[in-house]
Design a protein around this nucleic acid. Structure first.
Length: 276
DNA sequence: CGTGCCCCCTGTCAGC
DNA sequence: TGCTGACAGGGGGCAC
C-alpha cells in the first residue's frame, strides 16, 4: 500500500514522539512479519533507543544504537501507529508487533491486516548493502532527467513495470506510477527504451511533482493507510487517473481506461497518453 | 541477466 | 441472505 509519500508522512509523524525513546518490551503477536525468531527479535530490541526515524524508498528506517537499524516495509496494509500511555480509544484490530516504550511514552504498534509487511534488523554493513540495492531517491539529487533517461534506455519493460522496480527508482508504487505517466502524457504500457529525451524529462518532472503533492496531502488513503497518528491522507481526492475508470480525463474529458498489466491495474487516458 | 507470472494474507464489494 | 470471484497501495521466488 504505502508508497514514498505515505512512508515519508509516517516518518515525520513518528520523529518527535519516538526519537530518544527506549524500548522497554517487545510484544510479538504475529511472528511471520519478522526477519527472525520472535524471541531473538525481541531480545535484540529490548533496551534499545530509537535514535532517529527516516525513510528509504517506501521503507521506514529507525536507527538504533551501535549503528543498527530496524527497517519496516509496510507491504500493502502495514501501519506504524503511536499509542498513548492512556491507551484511549479502540484497541488496534490487527496488531502484529508492539514496541512498549519506557517512561510513560506509550507504545509503537506495527499493525498489518494482510501481513505482507516485514520488520528486519540490520547491522551497519547489512543496511549499506540493502540500501545500495535500491535505486536513487526520486526527490534526491541523484535522480536527474539524464540519469532517468539512461535507465529507461537500458530496459525493454513497460513503463509502469519499470517504475515499480525499486532497483530503478526507490519509492514509486502503482498509484504514483500511474499518476506520473498521466502527467507526463506517456502510455504506461510503452516499452521504456522507446521513450525519447523529451519524454524522460516530462516523466522526471511528473514523478517529482506527484510525490511532492502527495506528501503535502499526507499521502493517499484508499483503504488501509493511516499516518502514525491514525489519520487518513488527503491525496485520494486529487488523484487524476488512479481508480477513476470511466470518469472523464481531467485534461480532455475522454473516459479513463482501466486495463490489467502484469496482474495489476493500470489507469490512463488513451487520448492524452497515446499508444506508442 | 532480464522479464513476467504466481503467490503470500485478509478483507471488501459486486453480482448472482 | 449467502456464496463466489475479482481485486487491493508490495515484493520474493521461480521458470523461461
Amino acid at each position: 500500500m504505502p508508497e514514498l509519500p505515505e512512508a515519508e508522512t509516517i516518518a515525520r509523524g513518528l520523529r518527535d514522539p519516538v526519537t530518544g525513546a527506549t524500548v522497554d518490551r517487545v510484544e510479538v503477536v504475529h511472528a511471520d512479519v519478522l526477519d527472525r525468531e520472535a524471541g531473538d527479535f525481541s531480545a535484540r530490541l529490548r533496551g534499545a533507543v530509537f535514535e532517529s526515524v527516516g525513510r528509504r524508498g517506501k521503507n521506514l528506517v529507525l536507527r538504533l544504537g551501535d549503528s543498527r537499524r530496524m527497517v519496516v516495509n509496510l507491504g500493502m496494509s502495514g501501519r506504524l501507529l503511536l499509542r498513548g500511555p492512556g491507551a484511549s480509544g479502540a484497541p488496534p484490530t490487527h496488531p502484529a508487533v508492539y514496541f512498549h516504550l519506557e517512561g510513560g511514552r506509550g507504545s509503537l504498534v506495527y499493525h498489518d491486516v494482510r501481513r505482507f509487511g516485514h520488520l528486519s534488523l540490520h547491522s551497519a554493513s547489512e543496511y549499506a548493502t540493502w540500501s545500495a540495492s535500491l535505486g536513487p531517491e526520486p526527490l534526491g539529487p541523484e535522480f536527474t532527467a539524464a540519469a532517468l533517461q539512461r535507465g529507461l534506455q537500458s530496459s525493454t519493460t513497460p513503463l509502469r513495470s519499470w517504475l515499480l522496480d525499486q532497483r530503478r527508482v526507490a519509492g514509486v508504487g502503482n498509484i504514483y506510477a500511474n499518476e506520473a505517466a498521466f502527467l507526463a502524457r506517456i502510455d504506461p504500457r510503452a516499452r521504456t527504451h522507446t521513450l525519447d529525451a523529451d519524454a524522460a524529462r516530462r516523466l522526471h518532472r511528473a514523478i517529482r511533482r506527484v510525490l511532492r503533492e502527495a506528501i503535502d496531502a499526507r499521502g493517499t488513503t484508499l483503504r488501509d493507510y493511516r499516518t502514525a497518528q491514525g489519520w487518513k491522507g488527503e491525496y485520494a481526492a486529487k488523484l487524476r487517473v488512479y481508480g477513476r475508470a470511466g470518469e472523464p480525463c481531467p485534461r480532455c474529458a475522454e473516459p479513463i481506461v482501466r486495463e490489467v498489466l502484469s496482474n495489476r491495474s493500470i489507469f490512463f487516458c488513451s487520448r492524452c497518453q497515446p499508444a506508442p
